[in-house]
Design a protein around this nucleic acid. Structure first.
Lengths: 254, 254
DNA sequence: GTACACCTTCACGTTGCGTCAATGTCAAAT
DNA sequence: ATTTGACATTGACGCAACGTGAAGGTGTAC
């Protein structure tokens, strides 16, 4: 099967301009040019384009993709690993920023105003990180990837990030639950929101969510005094309230 | 305090070119121009720049930022909260990307090379996801932000991504543990790696990690038959082996 | 006085295409 | 046979958010 630009474009969901651009930049050349100067693509080009689009979806630059798909002996996995580590770095940055924004929110709400230096501290930290990233990238390019070190730091960042999220979620649950408790109604919107948040929280932990298990855990909060103590810390009765909310949420009013 | 371009640039960690660009596009004008044509910024500009940079970090366009910061009837905390939620969104996106990249890596490394159909399948799925995302964006643009719906879908995706990660980690634990169990030595490198993975796993769940609690959980795996059943499913004795490994890992051989 | 760091404006380069513009080609309907 | 409409082609400009010079004026320290 042979395709013109538009046919191939429609097949793959990209524009003809994009195909011409890929031709221009030697990323994907047509199989041949017909007598009228039309670009004609064949099956091999379809496959290659698929590969290209795949990498593009992963966020690699076209230049990078060119290296991967044009060089058959190129180590795609290594490239992906590098890309992954870049993505993880990016996420780490994001986490820092989120922390900064949250700090700002609370400090603004708390009324304490920051000095100029403090205001920019977060950004400076970010810049430093950027530099380290840049530096790290150069090192990697020079010496290849020290897999152990890299993956170690990756994992550390990952769990740190996730950990932050879980903590945040836990805080959200606590505040929502406290609000909801005031209504006294475990079927209220707020209480149901708390139950939903709680579900999200346990989903970090459980490989699979089931209503039964969720409801069971709610009961456990009442039965197990360690949990009860945790939830009733501020307001006695909160654990039972949460259990009720969960029972309603899960429809497990057994 | 008054600043020239470079002084403000150093304070805020951005280039003088950027400041000039912001001036040019009417995003941030200097307080005044001195007799030699130098841009002079004051305290108000420092504050405004800080705001600008916060929004810039979000990935908001400068045009959008201009609208926000030039509008005096503007709720800073609310904006920051929106900010924050967008950052979380962004991280969710990143997590999805990372998960995709990792899936690709592991499937390639797993030696099981994908057929074209399978490759295309993943790609198509990704496209569908993108479309849905796009669709969602359009909806939001049309109807403003239906806060509830939005946060729901956000959280859903987020937990989905995280959930994938946790699942992966759980699988890693299982396989590493199975390997380690063969050695019979809970102090072996493999067993310790399993304990480490296990630590990472529980850190998704626990707000704070403590060796004591970790070791305690290990003991619980032996004491609580539900857990024992889970871990001993393939190899009886695995739960106890994991407990021992954790005890060594945490140094809690009490 | 001169070196040197700083300031200014002007203007081109970057990525990954979208979007004209001007022109050529092909198949079908008139 | 011609006209129409949908294709194709090659430029070339534009976008965002600056980086990176060039060419020249200013401030200050030795």
């Amino acid at each position: 099967m042979e395709y013109t630009v538009q046919k191939l474009g429609k097949l793959s969901g990209i524009s003809s301009r994009t195909l011409r651009y890929y031709d221009e930049m030697d990323l994907l050349k047509p199989a041949r040019i017909n007598s009228s100067g039309y670009r004609i693509y064949g099956q091999a080009e379809v496959n290659k384009l698929q590969q290209i689009l795949f990498y593009r979806e992963l966020g690699l630059s076209l230049e990078h993709i060119k290296q991967i798909v044009s060089n058959p002996s190129f180590d795609g996995v290594k490239a992906l690993n590098e890309h992954r580590s870049q993505l993880l770095d990016k996420r780490k940055q994001l986490d820092l920023l989120i922390a900064n924004v949250e700090k700002t929110i609370s400090s603004v709400e708390g009324g304490c105003n920051m000095t100029n230096d403090e205001k920019f501290e977060g950004f400076k930290q970010k810049m430093i990180d950027d530099n380290e990233q840049q530096y790290g990238k150069e090192i990697r390019e020079k010496y290849g990837d020290d897999t152990v070190n890299q993956s170690n730091s990756k994992v550390k960042n990952m769990t740190q990030a996730q950990h932050d999220e879980v903590t945040k979620l836990a805080n959200e649950i606590a505040s929502t639950l406290a609000e909801a408790f005031k209504t006294g109604n475990p079927a209220s919107d707020l209480a149901q929101k708390a139950a939903d948040l709680h579900k999200q929280w346990i989903m970090y932990y459980w490989p699979k969510y089931s209503k039964e298990a969720h409801a069971g855990l709610g009961q456990m909060y009442v039965d197990d005094e360690r949990f009860t103590a945790y939830y009733d810390k501020e307001q006695p009765g909160t654990a039972a309230f949460l259990r009720d909310a969960i029972q309603i949420y899960t429809g497990m009013k057994s």
